[in-house]
């Protein structure tokens, strides 16, 4: 995905800070994601990675700092508006709507549906139904590609933990995102499924979607990422290619302790 006029960074954040009481969860952090890249975000437990995600998607309002997405500042937008711009987040513990079917979970994610306006539901029934049919086809195609098609009509609550992760990713795909923020896609997932998830991420990346991934599983980070950011105690510790990070003594120290 090379677009000449657009800047190199799809997402860049500078001087982000957030305190909870006296604790500086994120302090003057900076991060950027290149267009079309898979970028990793690692750090010891409690480093503020998930908080940083929450700040980027404005689920938590930052105290300070700016976030630029696709050339436009987004830190003043509501979280749903950020999602509408094409920057979609997932959650650390996969969140699915367990009382809706897997297919409905997918359909919910579709952007700009005619049927989301209740006047149109009443007065443009035909186009709403037509659109719903098309969205269903697309959802089924995505479900097929991630191997959840047999589960399409089951309640999402009946899925296993790994399947929920898959559903959550498939659901973000339904929104036609530019950037997906993945929070620990491999946590609590068996090795076979981790491999499958990695393969999906690579495929989607080739289709032009960029990724920012928080992950503790170093194999995943090393095999997927083009660039890795390291966060410790809320601030940037290092960034570079996976190889550089692997050999960075500071990073090793942060992980292993004093």
């Amino acid at each position: 995905m090379s677009q000449d006029k657009s800047p190199r960074f799809l997402l860049s954040a500078n001087e982000l800070s957030k305190s909870f009481g006296g604790i500086k969860a994120v302090n003057n952090a900076k991060i950027s994601v290149n267009r079309g890249s898979i970028t990793g975000l690692i750090g010891p437990n409690g480093a503020g990675k998930t908080t940083l995600f929450n700040l980027l998607s404005n689920f938590i309002r930052p105290d300070r700092g700016e976030v630029i997405f696709d050339g436009k500042p987004i830190h003043h937008l509501q979280s749903y508006q950020i999602a509408q711009q094409g920057c979609i987040r997932t959650f650390q513990v996969a969140r699915v709507l367990s009382k809706l079917s897997v297919l409905e979970n997918m359909l919910l994610a579709t952007q700009k549906q005619t049927g989301e306006n209740f006047f149109r539901v009443w007065f443009q029934q035909k186009s709403v139904r037509q659109e719903e049919r098309e969205n269903k086809e697309r959802a089924m195609a995505i479900l097929e590609s991630v191997g959840l098609i047999e589960k399409a009509h089951d309640y999402a609550g009946a899925l296993s933990g790994g399947q929920r992760k898959l559903l959550e990713m498939a659901r973000t795909l339904m929104t036609n995102p530019k950037l997906i923020l993945l929070d620990e896609p491999a946590a609590g997932v068996n090795p076979t499924l981790i491999e499958r998830i990695c393969k999906h991420i690579l495929t989607w990346n080739q289709q032009g979607i960029s990724f920012l991934i928080i992950e503790h599983n170093m194999d995943v980070i090393m095999s997927l990422c083009h660039h890795v950011w390291v966060l410790a105690e809320g601030t940037n510790l290092a960034d570079g290619t996976p190889q550089e990070i692997q050999n960075n003594p500071q990073v090793l120290e942060a992980y292993l302790g004093d």
């Binding site: 998607s57 689920f59 979280s79 749903y80 508006q81 999602a83 509408q84 979609i88 987040r89 997932t90 959650f91 969140r95 699915v96 709507l97 367990s98 009382k99 809706l100 919910l108 994610a109 952007q111 989301e116 659901r171 973000t172 929104t175």
Partner: peptide, 15 residues
């Protein structure tokens, strides 16, 4: 219905 269950999900999906 999605709001009834967990409003963070529709918010994350741009609703």
């Amino acid at each position: 219905k999605s709001i009834r269950e967990d409003e963070e999900i529709p918010r994350a999906l741009g609703k």
